[in-house]
């Protein structure tokens, strides 16, 4: 903490022992420490309560439930690993939901981040109207998660929706994008890519952190724009690409509203938009197979933890932390 240096006589003492009554000796230091800890726990009381009652407790309960058969009305029946076994051996819809979600994440996250990075690079420092562009591109990120936009999407890509009426100008008769199992997931991917504004803003902030002098030095040495991008911008931006990647993967694996609304709660047509969380919702809160839903939730947790872990392991090979680490 460098700023302690600037405080008068004995900064450390002042910090640790505020307003200490004069003339007290040993032991008081501990008393003050205890006072500070006591205060901290009071400030943290709501959070602690939430941690136990809303987070950790339910996680443990969820693990227990995942080994049972439970429907809210009857007592939970212990079934061991049955739920997990059923998921991977008997439940085709579960596997379908896993497949749909994986495709969704694998296709939409890289596309979204690529757009975000590209636009962030185009919105250079000093570009006129930068803040307006940034706002316009950012707006869809704020609205994209809403029911209203999902409804709009359903209508835009409907059989006689906006997209098809535009295509008709060119004499093309488009399919019913959301009702055709081949294209329905594509519309959801497009919706996700449309919300590239949030990672773009983070990229923009990251670009600002790169000292201008690096570029000046590079252009003195005759480096082209492309070389500068490859050897300055990209390496220095990798921590932020990594951050966005981790975050977006976690987030998009849990997407719910879009698939729920666009498929009107069914995951259709023919389960082509059956997201993992949508199926979990159906199992747990429509069929009230809560043990099974809890098991699905734990599998989701493991998948997300696993992906994040792999991400961190892989980061050693491509993320450049410069001299900060």
């Amino acid at each position: 903490m460098p700023h302690q240096v600037s405080v008068s006589p004995s900064p450390k003492q002042v910090r640790l022992e505020p307003a200490r009554p004069v003339g007290q000796h040993r032991g008081t230091k501990n008393a003050w420490k205890r006072r500070e800890a006591g205060a901290a726990y009071v400030f943290l009381a709501p959070w602690f309560l939430g941690l136990i009652a809303i987070t950790v407790g339910p996680i443990v309960a969820s693990l227990y439930l995942s080994f049972t058969d439970y429907s809210l009305l009857e007592e939970a029946q212990w079934v061991g690993l049955d739920n997990y076994a059923r998921m991977f051996t008997e439940d085709d819809r579960f596997l379908q939901s896993l497949k749909v979600t994986t495709i969704y994440v694998v296709v939409s996250v890289p596309m979204q981040l690529a757009f975000a990075l590209l636009l962030a690079l185009l919105l250079d420092r000093g570009l006129r109207g930068l803040t307006i562009y940034r706002s316009v591109y950012y707006l869809p990120s704020l609205l994209g998660g809403s029911v209203a936009i999902a409804i709009l999407w359903r209508k835009i890509f409907g059989t006689d929706g906006l997209v098809n009426s535009v295509l008709l100008w060119f004499g093309i008769e488009g399919p019913g994008w959301v009702t055709d199992p081949d294209t329905a997931l594509g519309t959801l991917i497009l919706l996700h890519v449309w919300t590239f504004g949030a990672p773009m803003v983070i990229f923009l902030a990251g670009l600002r952190q790169i000292p201008q002098s690096y570029y000046e030095a590079a252009s003195v040495d005759g480096a082209t724009k492309l070389t500068q991008f490859r050897h300055i911008t990209l390496p220095l931006l990798t921590p932020i690409i990594f951050f966005n990647l981790v975050l977006e993967i976690i987030k998009s694996f849990q997407s719910f509203t879009q698939s729920f609304i666009v498929s009107n709660g069914t995951g259709g047509p023919v389960d082509s938009t059956l997201f993992y969380t949508l199926y979990l919702y159906m199992k747990g809160f429509k069929n009230f197979e809560m043990g099974y839903a809890a098991a699905m939730a734990w599998v989701l947790l493991l998948i997300i933890a696993g992906l994040t872990g792999v991400n961190f392991l892989m980061s050693k090979y491509w993320v450049f932390y410069g001299d900060t680490k």
């Binding site: 987070t55 407790g57 339910p58 996680i59 969820s62 809210l72 849990q254 989701l300």
Partner: peptide, 17 residues
């Protein structure tokens, strides 16, 4: 860690309670 935690892991017991 709780920032990264998927909501779904806690939602079933929460709903029950």
């Amino acid at each position: 860690g709780s920032i990264m935690l998927p909501h779904h892991v806690t939602v079933v017991p929460q709903y029950i309670v």
